[in-house]
């Protein structure tokens, strides 16, 4: 897309947001939609300012983000090396395949009761939920990415004297990296689903808790504020991830 076309798309998007927000605001103010069901954007904004001033919103965002990141990173730290090994060894893959295929279909949320029985409702249970939700899909993405590395490049490396380990480090890992990163991006979204649900079921802070708590008090603006905050936080993390991707795979930019 050309510069000019890019600007045009951006301007259209901004106008769309403004028009949409105005219509929403007006339909609340003019009584077309009851604000009990759907508070106006300005009411949500005011709620946001109040929560920011008291520091509650920042604390919630931080708590949820930390849980997502810790669980996600632990899962990636285990799943990436394991996936690379399973992706390149038929024997080990055969050993682990039955376990993976049993765990994989389980929705992450189905781990919540068991994790609460094992770990209560503290931080470690939150990390565990994210880990359980992220681990199996990460592993599957990594194995798949590994298998898609061009076999000719592996041959070329071996021809130049690369050992088995060197092939893994120098060819399979970088060759799979673009697909690994796009897999991880999908898993990051899954991790957010996990943590919001887990916080709704048992937590004393975090965005999931805030929404659930607001619902109990009939505070619709706060429920919506919580949802908007989740959306914005995930968007920001996605952007950071994209930057990271550009840093890590500079050769794909050309």
């Amino acid at each position: 897309m050309s510069r000019l076309a890019q600007y045009r798309t951006m301007i259209i998007s901004i106008i769309s947001v403004i028009v949409f927000g105005l219509i929403w605001e007006l339909s609340g103010r003019l009584g077309w939609i009851s604000t009990v069901f759907l508070p106006t954007p300005s009411a949500i904004f005011q709620e946001g300012m109040a929560l920011l001033r008291s520091g509650i919103l920042q604390a919630d965002i931080l708590a949820s983000t930390r849980r997502v990141l810790v669980g996600f990173l632990i899962s990636a730290a285990v799943a990436v090396p394991l996936g690379l090994i399973l992706g390149t060894s038929e024997v080990l893959k055969a050993v682990f395949d039955p376990i993976i295929s049993i765990i994989r279909p389980l929705p992450a949320l189905s781990w919540i009761p068991l994790s609460m029985l094992w770990l209560g409702i503290g931080e470690s249970q939150k990390y565990a939920i994210v880990f359980m939700g992220a681990f199996a899909p990460t592993l599957v993405y990594i194995i798949d990415a590994t298998k898609r590395v061009d076999p000719l490049l592996i041959k070329a490396a071996q021809n130049l004297g690369a050992s088995r380990w060197a092939v893994l480090r120098e060819v399979v890992l970088p060759g799979a990296l673009p697909n690994i990163l796009s897999g991880l991006k999908v898993v990051l979204a899954v991790a957010w689903t996990c943590i919001i649900s887990a916080e709704m079921v048992g937590a004393s802070n975090g965005l999931g808790f805030r929404i659930w708590n607001a619902k109990d008090w009939g505070n619709t603006p706060q429920v919506l504020l919580g949802m908007v905050s989740i959306s914005l936080t995930v968007l920001v993390m996605d952007q950071i991830f994209k930057q990271l991707e550009r840093k890590l795979v500079p050769w794909e930019r050309g």
Partner: peptide, 13 residues
């Protein structure tokens, strides 16, 4: 043996 492939087989990264 040093192999030179028709499709180059260079490491893109």
């Amino acid at each position: 043996c040093g192999m030179i492939f028709q499709s180059y087989a260079l490491f893109p990264w």
